[in-house]
Amino acid sequence: MTFKLIINGKTLKGETTTEAVDAATAEKVFKQYFNDNGIDGEWTYDDATKTFTITE
């Protein structure tokens, strides 16, 4: 399955996707992406659209 990440950061904005077997696996991938890029904020997940959103 394809999961999308929408980034609404102070310095970084955009979208990316990842292929994962489930939302929990995608969450781990995206959290690592947050850490690697110094993004910290509030994030949500919409199961209907398989979209994670992080807002700094």
Rank of each mutant, 00 (worst) to 15 (best):
M1K: 09
M1Y: 15
T2W: 11
T2S: 08
F3A: 01
K4F: 13
K4A: 03
K4G: 02
K4P: 01
L5N: 01
L5T: 02
L5P: 01
L5K: 01
L5F: 09
L5H: 00
I6N: 03
I7P: 00
I7E: 01
N8F: 12
N8Q: 09
N8I: 14
G9H: 09
G9M: 15
G9T: 15
K10A: 11
K10S: 10
T11K: 09
T11Y: 14
T11D: 10
T11W: 14
L12S: 09
L12E: 06
K13N: 09
K13R: 11
G14R: 11
G14D: 08
G14W: 15
E15D: 05
T16N: 05
T17F: 13
T18E: 03
T18K: 03
T18W: 11
T18S: 03
E19P: 03
E19H: 13
E19R: 12
E19V: 15
A20T: 04
A20E: 03
A20V: 04
A20R: 02
V21H: 09
V21C: 09
V21D: 08
D22W: 02
D22K: 01
D22H: 02
A23D: 02
A23M: 10
A23I: 06
A24R: 09
A24F: 09
A24Q: 10
T25V: 06
A26V: 02
A26D: 00
K28G: 06
K28D: 05
K28R: 13
K28E: 08
K28T: 08
V29D: 04
F30E: 00
K31Q: 08
Q32F: 06
Q32L: 10
Q32T: 10
Y33Q: 07
F34G: 15
F34Q: 15
F34R: 07
F34A: 15
F34H: 04
D36Y: 07
N37G: 09
N37P: 05
N37K: 14
N37I: 15
G38F: 14
G38E: 10
G38T: 09
I39F: 14
I39K: 04
I39M: 10
D40A: 11
D40E: 13
G41W: 15
E42K: 08
E42V: 14
E42W: 11
E42G: 05
E42N: 08
W43V: 06
W43G: 00
W43F: 09
W43E: 01
T44L: 07
T44M: 08
T44C: 08
Y45T: 00
Y45H: 00
Y45Q: 00
Y45A: 00
Y45R: 00
D46S: 04
D46H: 05
D46F: 03
D46R: 02
D47P: 13
D47R: 06
D47L: 04
D47K: 06
D47A: 13
T49P: 00
T49C: 03
T49Y: 03
T49R: 05
T49Q: 04
K50V: 03
K50I: 02
K50E: 02
K50C: 04
T51W: 01
T51G: 00
T51M: 02
T51Y: 01
F52A: 00
F52P: 00
T53L: 05
T53W: 06
T53Q: 04
I54H: 05
I54M: 12
I54W: 15
I54S: 02
I54T: 03
I54F: 15
T55C: 04
T55I: 06
E56I: 15
E56A: 08
